[in-house]
Amino acid sequence: MERKAQILSGVTFIAMLLAIYMVFIYAPIERKMGILQKIFYFHVSTAWIPYLAFLVVFLCSIVFLWRRDKRWDTIAFCSAEIGLVIDTLVLITGSIWAKPAWGVWWTWEPRLTTSLIMWLLYAGYLLLRRSVEEAMRRARFAAVYGIAAFISVPISFMSIRWWRTIHPVVIKPTGIELEPPMITALIVCLVAFTLFYFCLLQQRYRLKKIKDEIEDIKSELGG
């Protein structure tokens, strides 16, 4: 198990280095926005992680309610936490890019608003978990909430396709409107950040399990 974690960390590290190379050296400079457009690679590849992380929360919540095995609840919790942290980065990188590209840090348009709602819902998920003390009850509440909150994910994803927005739609059903080297760089970034997510999830899960075991021992000792 330890060995697997080390391999995953190593592969992630190499993928991240490769991603930096692809973005800053391999990918060409965009004509209109220049060097600014580089943030696109990080923004898009981090933006997909919360969607993935919250899908994991959703699936693990369903399996938990079905099997009542606490391990699924632990994975859901860890995934929600990582998803929220990375989602925060998405909002920050998006805002940094919006200022030079659109002229404002923030505007209440559909993609930004639905993404903020998603962020709030998962912040609420973590708050809810903190407010219930008994473990099985907490897991049950969190699972129901984790399933319901997932509705915000497809809405956030589809918002730029359903409604009038200022946010660009780069990946369309007709294809990606990017030049081939830019697509390659984007794919490398997507893979690197996906590996990073699984790497964090594995480490967080291990930590959480150790913490829960300590809590169990404490309560057995009458702590």
Binding site: Q37, V169, E179
Partner: peptide
């Protein structure tokens, strides 16, 4: 606000 093109050109 400026709306940027979703197409990136080199």
């Amino acid at each position: 606000l400026a709306r940027c093109p979703s197409k990136y050109i080199t």
